[in-house]
Write a protein that binds this DNA or RNA. Structure first.
Lengths: 325, 325
DNA sequence: TTACATATGTCAATCGGTTGTCATATAATT
DNA sequence: AATTATATGACAACCGATTGACATATGTAA
């Protein structure tokens, strides 16, 4: 059986109050007693039960992370950065992969509340989920509006869309198409599309948009192929994430064999992984470290009751990274 | 303040024992009472405190995941799959990114024990850490020997190394070099290198191995460049993971401008992400879903006291995936 | 009428710590 | 000698639930 504080007290020949005092550095403790206790702790390989502690203190140092999936390199990097930042501040994270399913998301939210998390960081992409508003809990959203009380961290999606489209124009593209992920209401990421539309209209061109039904690999290929067959004149594509852009590149290679068109592509996210695999891809780089850092900072400020309403909406800068030739 | 079971009892006009009976479906409860209680739960947005429950039952349904980082697509996909499988069995996961640092790993192990996890899945890559043996806890390791009592899940690294090297030989490569990650003791992943060495020796060739000092992007580029300058005759590279392989590809593109060598490359892992970005890369595909599934299955069998010693070492099949032309 | 199933309540112990209050004892200071 | 700082223990309440034992109602079936 796992030892408890009484076992330690017995072995060290002291009271459990004294053990608690050693563990928490409170009150007077002689060096001899401290050492006796620490020796007993080592000997029995004792680990104080943090659940009991948390129960008493009503503070768990748990944080819930709800994201679509760490299998996507953008979320994989973001979650890794968030977890690091949390760990360095003494918080532990529950990972929840919602897989784009609203029902999973609601179940996770419920689970996190039952487990008394101190706060939640949400980057999942589902339709409006009212449960977030009722959850009377510190929450931070990444690239998503949950309610007007829940702070949002975004990077400058609108500017990103504009920069991407402008770059394609500068490269001499005449027929630029935008391919984006499944459309959701009130997602700041939709502003990428707005940026694209604005630049297109300013240039006197008609925006053409293709939308994925779901965020699946097969789906990406299907849509990209449809673009190539339905839009034979296309010479520029702005993809709303790098994996779609990668699919465009590989499909266009096959296509190019039949057709000598050159197609310029711009992606979105600029993760380390995709930059390593496809350095030739031009992309809009999101400041992942900064997003993670701000999300944790704002969540902890809520948890510690120091939230500034100026932090209710954070817009971080993006950067166009031109691919290596 | 958050409501507790007594608040629900008071509002529903019943005793807290009755509320507990409703929550746990025990004993006799009339439909009317059940409805009164459920209405009170909804009204107060009550979430039973699972920490208190866990404390009493000595069972948390928590599982700790210790991995290098979800920023690496292999671990990102693996962690996502593991989390999914856990969630579908009612378990919640703590995510721990050790970042290849043994000190972090030990701290995480400690933290997980203090938080009474029911078990741990370790995929981190550090030197021998004796703390795992003392931790009197169900543990499963992925591609790593922790102790003879801790079951290991691996894919067939030795065969992978052989298949990769053989393929390069079949492609007509004469000077095949192996680049691998930082070398650790007793890691089954080192068998990839053994497979390479065996095939090379059988072919009467001398194995040449370059090793990364650390798993960092800059490091990869440095080593790859060193290979190109120090081994001008190289025409085949077996990289021990896809990101190294990707770096070889992109560096060789630059190199090819100065030198008309063609270099064939084989990577390792075959993640969805890298397959999407670099479908032309030949690679050894690890069965990520299966690894995740087996890891969870074996961990839960330990937790439920149904562990079969035949599961002490699981070897899963790998597959050579030839890149698209 | 007796027996049993159904329905609910009271009460206390338990899980593993934390913390405040009091008591007590030794040692160091004034 | 009186005061104060140091060191430890005993005890109980508390955090929020679970559970078993026991009491006490009904309602229903034998």
């Amino acid at each position: 059986m796992k030892p408890n504080i009484k076992d330690i007290a017995r072995l060290a020949g002291v009271s459990s109050t004294t053990v608690s005092r050693v563990l928490n550095n409170r009150g007077y403790i002689s060096i001899q007693t401290r050492e006796k206790v620490q020796k007993a702790i080592k000997k029995l390989n004792y680990h104080p039960n943090d659940l009991a502690r948390s129960l008493y203190h009503k503070h768990t140092y748990f944080i819930g992370l709800i994201f679509p999936t760490t299998a996507n390199p953008f979320f994989g990097e973001l979650v890794s950065d968030i977890e690091n930042e949390c760990a360095s501040q003494g918080y532990k994270v529950f990972l929840c992969n919602s897989l784009g399913r609203a029902d999973k998301e609601i179940k996770y939210l419920n689970m996190l509340q039952r487990n008394q998390v101190d706060g939640i960081i949400v980057g999942a992409h589902n339709r409006n989920i009212p449960e977030y508003r009722q959850a009377n809990l510190p929450i931070v959203a990444i690239d998503r509006y949950l309610s007007n009380k829940i702070p949002v961290i975004s990077s400058d999606n609108f500017l990103g869309g504009k920069l991407a489209t402008n770059w394609l124009l500068e490269q001499g593209c005449r027929n630029i198409i935008h391919i984006c992920g499944p459309h959701e209401l009130e997602t700041p990421a939709n502003r990428r599309r707005d940026g694209y539309e604005e630049v297109m209209r300013s240039a006197g061109k008609k925006p053409i948009i293709y939308e994925l039904a779901e965020m699946l690999p097969d789906n990406r290929t299907d849509v990209v192929r449809r673009v190539f067959t339905e839009q034979p004149e296309v010479d520029g594509i702005f993809a709303s994430d790098d994996l779609i852009a990668a699919t465009v590149l590989s499909e266009s290679k096959k296509y190019r064999r039949l057709n000598c068109n050159h197609i310029k592509v711009v992606g979105y996210d600029g993760t380390e992984t995709v930059r390593t695999c496809l350095p030739q891809l031009t992309t809009i780089e999101q400041p992942i470290h900064q997003i993670a850092w701000e999300a944790v900072r704002i969540l902890l400020s809520q948890i510690n009751g120091e939230f500034q309403s100026s932090d209710n909406e954070i817009l971080l800068p993006i950067k166009l990274v031109v691919g290596t030739p």
